[in-house]
Simulated assay, not measured.
Amino acid sequence: MTTHQLRVVVEAEDYDAALRFYRDVLGLPEQESYHGDGDARVSILDAGRATLELSNPAQVRMIDRVETDGDRSERMRLAFEVDDTAATTDVLAAAGATVTATPRETPWRSLNARLRTPGDLQVTLFQELETLQERAARPGFRTEPDDVATVLDLERELQTSDLRHDTARLERLIAPDFAGIDDSGRAWDHAGIADALTRDAPAATDMQDLAGHAIADGVVLVTWASVRHERRARRSSLWRRDPDGWRLVHHQGTPLA
Rank of each mutant, 00 (worst) to 15 (best):
R232T: 05
R7M: 12
D37N: 04
T98A: 08
D209N: 15
V42M: 10
Q208A: 15
D64P: 12
A101R: 07
G253F: 13
D200W: 08
R116C: 06
L45V: 03
G36M: 04
L111H: 15
A50P: 00
I181V: 15
H35F: 01
M76G: 09
I174H: 03
T3A: 15
I215R: 14
V249N: 02
S161E: 13
L111K: 08
D146F: 02
V10R: 13
G36Q: 04
P107F: 12
L28N: 10
L248M: 08
P255M: 08
S184L: 10
R228A: 03
E157V: 11
G185I: 04
A97L: 07
H165I: 00
I174F: 04
A86K: 14
M62L: 13
D84T: 09
A191M: 01
D183S: 07
H165N: 11
S73W: 10
G119D: 02
V227A: 15
F126T: 00
Q133F: 00
Y22L: 11
W224Y: 15
D183F: 12
M76F: 06
M62C: 06
D120I: 02
G140A: 06
D84H: 13
W246Q: 12
A18W: 10
R135T: 05
L129K: 09
V42K: 06
L248D: 03
T106Q: 12
E11K: 15
E128G: 00
Q122K: 03
T150Q: 12
T117N: 07
A137L: 01
L158T: 08
T89V: 08
T3E: 06
T51N: 00
T198W: 07
L54N: 01
R77P: 09
Q31I: 07
Q159P: 03
T205S: 10
L111P: 06
L163I: 14
H251R: 00
L238K: 03
A187Q: 04
R231Y: 05
R247A: 15
P243N: 12
L154Q: 08
V82P: 05
G185H: 04
S161Q: 12
A94K: 14
R109P: 03
D146G: 03
W224N: 15
D39N: 09
V10G: 01
D162C: 02
D147R: 01
Q208N: 15
F80A: 12
H213F: 14
L197V: 11
Y22Q: 10
L111M: 14
A233R: 11
T100R: 12
R228K: 14
T100F: 02
D189V: 03
D147Y: 01
D153E: 10
D69T: 12
D206Y: 07
T98K: 09
P145S: 09
A196P: 02
A137P: 01
A97W: 02
R104D: 00
A47G: 12
A211E: 15
P255W: 10
D64H: 07
L132P: 00
